[in-house]
Write a protein that binds this DNA or RNA. Sequence first.
DNA 1: AGAAATTTGTCCGTATGTATC
DNA 2: AGATACATACGGACAAATTTC
Lengths: 140, 140
Amino acid sequence: MPTPHYGQPRYRVIADELRRRIESGAIPSGSLLPTESALTAEFRASRGTIRQAIAVLRDERLVETEHGRGTYANPYRLVDGPGEGPEVETRERQVAADPELAALFAVEVGAALVEQQNITLMNGAVGAVVRIYRLPQGTQ
Amino acid sequence: MPTPHYGQPRYRVIADELRRRIESGAIPSGSLLPTESALTAEFRASRGTIRQAIAVLRDERLVETEHGRGTYANPYRLVDGPGEGPEVETRERQVAADPELAALFAVEVGAALVEQQNITLMNGAVGAVVRIYRLPQGTQ
DNA sequence: AGAAATTTGTCCGTATGTATC
DNA sequence: AGATACATACGGACAAATTTC
C-alpha cells in the first residue's frame, strides 16, 4: 500500500486524537497511555509514526515519557499538596488573528497565529494567564 | 552493520558539530546548511539521523527549514540598529473576560480583567505579542 | 509554460541498545 | 534472568515544495 498523506500528516491526526482523549478524560490524568505497540495496532501506523505523534504531545507538555516505563497523560496537572509554590500549565494551539494582532503582525484578519498559553497557578487558584502570540513556523 | 550508540547518540554529536559551525561562522548566518544528502555523505549517517540532528537545532531556533528549499542558519538573529537592543512596548488596559478566561478565573463572562500587553520587536518587526491577564487589584 | 531535477516531508519495516520492572 | 518499553539507527519508498532547465 502506498503512503499518501494529503492534508494532515498521519502523526498529526493521531496526535489530535490522543489529545482529544486526554482532554476529554478518556485517558485519565496521570494514567499511562497505551503502549507504542498498542497504538501501532490500533492506528495501523508504524512505530516511528506513533512516536512522532507522542512527541507532539510531549512538546505540548501534555504527556511525559519515562524511559522503560511508559508515557503518562497530563503529568503537570496540579494536584498540589499543601504549601507548594506556583505551578504553570502550558498549552499551545493555533488561533485566528484578531484585528489588533493582524495589524501588529502585518497579516490578514483571521490568519493563523500560534498561541501559547501559560496558566500560572498559586495554591490551586489561577494567578495569571499569559498568552504569547507568534507567527507560525516558517512564515517569518 | 550493527548500530551501537554508546555514550552520546550520533544525532547529538552531529548536532553539536553543526552548531559549532554555525556559531563559529563556518556556516554564515542566513546561509543554507549543506543538504541532507550531503550531510549523509559527510557524516556517514542515515538520513533519519541527519534529520534528527537538524531537528535538535530547529528546536533551539538556531536553524529554520523550508520545504523544498533547505535549512537556513540563524534566521532569528537580531541585527540591531545603532546601539539598539531588542525593544519592548508595554501597554496595560482593562478588558472583559472571554468565556475561557472567565472559567479560569472563576468570574462571570464579561467581568473586568487587567490585560498587560508586551510587544517584543526584532529587527523592527513584531516578534511576539504577550498578553498577561490578571484579576483587578483587590478582587483576589 | 512545462518538464525534470533537487530538496525536504512523511511513512514504512527492521534491528539493536538501554532502562525499568 | 526475563519481559516489557523506550531510544537510536538504518534503508527504502513516495509526496510535496522549490528551483532549474
